[in-house]
C-alpha cells in the first residue's frame, strides 16, 4: 500500500510539550518566592496590627471581654484573695496606670506554677506559683510584671497580631486550596499567637522593676522570683530563642543592670508573705502537679 507523502507519521522530537525544568528547582523557586512575599506582607500587617491595637480604648477592650468574665474563678473566701487584691491595688498605684484602666486579680487554687495577664485587665495568679515565693516583694514582682503587661496593652497587641496571622493563614490555605498548608503552618503560627513576645516580657520586667522600686525603695525580691522559676524548670532550660520568656539568668541580669542605671538599690529589707496566706496557699497546692511558668 503506497500512501501519498503527506500521509506519514514522522517521529516527533521529545519534550515539545513539557518545560525542561528540574521539578525540585521549580519547587524551590516557587516556595522561596511565595514565602518571601507572604512573610513580608504578613509580618508588616502583624506588626502594624499589634501596634494599632494599643490605640483601642481600654474601656472598649474591657467591655468586649465582659461577657467572658465568668471563666475566671470567683473569690472563694480565705485570706489569699483579699491580700492579693490589696497588693495589686498598691502596685497599680505605683505603676501609674492611665486613668480608666483597672486591674482585677484572680486567685486560682491549682498547683500550676504560673501567672498571666489577659484582655480587660484581668490577672490570674495560681497557688502553685505563690507557694514558691516566700517574700511579698517576689509576689509583688509577679503582679507588677502582669500589671505592666496590662498597662503596656500587650494582651490587645497580641490579639491584634493573632487576628492578622489567623486571617493570613486562612487566606493562604484558601488560595492554595490545600488543607495541609494550614495544618502545617497552623500550630507554628499559634505558638506566636498565644504568647507575649520576648520583647514584651522584657518591657514588662523593666516596668515591674520600676514599680517595685517605687513601692519598696529597692528591687530586692525580683531575683527570688526568677530563681524560683528556674528551680521549677526541670530537664534544663531551652535555648533563649526558642522560649518566649528570656532566660531566668538573663532576666536577673537585665533587672539588675536596669536598677544600677536608675540608681535603685538591688537589695533591701523584704517583707514576708503573711503566715495565714502561706498556710492557705500550701493547703491549695497539696496535690502537687507542677506546671510551667508563663
Amino acid at each position: 500500500m503506497s500512501l501519498p507523502p503527506e500521509y506519514a507519521n514522522p517521529p516527533l522530537p521529545e519534550g515539545i510539550n513539557v518545560t525542561r525544568t528540574h521539578p525540585l528547582a521549580d519547587f524551590a523557586r516557587l516556595l522561596g518566592g511565595v514565602a518571601v512575599v507572604v512573610v513580608a506582607v504578613v509580618g508588616v500587617s502583624a506588626v502594624a496590627a499589634a501596634h494599632l491595637a494599643r490605640f483601642v480604648p481600654f474601656s472598649a477592650e474591657a467591655a468586649a471581654v465582659q461577657r467572658f468574665e465568668r471563666v475566671f474563678p470567683e473569690a472563694g473566701g480565705g485570706p489569699v484573695e483579699p491580700w492579693l487584691r490589696d497588693l495589686t491595688a498598691r502596685i497599680a498605684a505605683a505603676s501609674r496606670l492611665p486613668s480608666g484602666m483597672t486591674v482585677t486579680v484572680h486567685y486560682v487554687q491549682e498547683p500550676t506554677v504560673n501567672a498571666f495577664a489577659t484582655l480587660g485587665g484581668h490577672v490570674v495568679m495560681y497557688a502553685g506559683l505563690l507557694e514558691k515565693l516566700e517574700s511579698e516583694n517576689a509576689v509583688a514582682m509577679v503582679l507588677a510584671h502582669e500589671v505592666a503587661h496590662v498597662k503596656l496593652r500587650h494582651p490587645a497587641s497580641t490579639l491584634g497580631r493573632g487576628l492578622v496571622l489567623g486571617l493570613a493563614l486562612t487566606l493562604v490555605s484558601t488560595a492554595t486550596g490545600s488543607d495541609m498548608v494550614g495544618n502545617v503552618l497552623g500550630p507554628a503560627g499559634l505558638l506566636t499567637v498565644l504568647s507575649f513576645s520576648r520583647r514584651q516580657e522584657r518591657e514588662a520586667d523593666e516596668a515591674a522593676a520600676g514599680a517595685l522600686a517605687t513601692l519598696y525603695g529597692h528591687t530586692g525580691g525580683a531575683p527570688d522570683l526568677f530563681r524560683a522559676i528556674e528551680v521549677q524548670r526541670t530537664g534544663g532550660s531551652p535555648p533563649a530563642f526558642l522560649s518566649t520568656h528570656p532566660l531566668d539568668a538573663e532576666r536577673i541580669a537585665a533587672v539588675e543592670s536596669l536598677a544600677r542605671a536608675r540608681g535603685w538599690p538591688t537589695t533591701g529589707a523584704t517583707r514576708p508573705v503573711p503566715p495565714d496566706v502561706r498556710a492557705a496557699v500550701r493547703r491549695a497546692t497539696e496535690r502537687a502537679a507542677p506546671g510551667v511558668v508563663d
Binding site: N17, V18, T19, T21, P23, D26, F27, L30, L31, G33, V34, A175, T176, G177, S178, M180, V181
Partner: peptide, 23 residues
C-alpha cells in the same frame, strides 16, 4: 509533590509545569 508545586504556582500564575509531563 506535584499537587503542592501546583498549589504554589496557583498563587502566582504561569505555567503549571508540574502537570505538563503528566498530561
Amino acid at each position: 509533590f506535584k499537587s503542592i508545586v501546583a498549589a504554589l504556582q496557583k498563587l502566582v500564575g504561569g505555567r503549571l509545569k508540574s502537570y505538563e509531563t503528566l498530561l
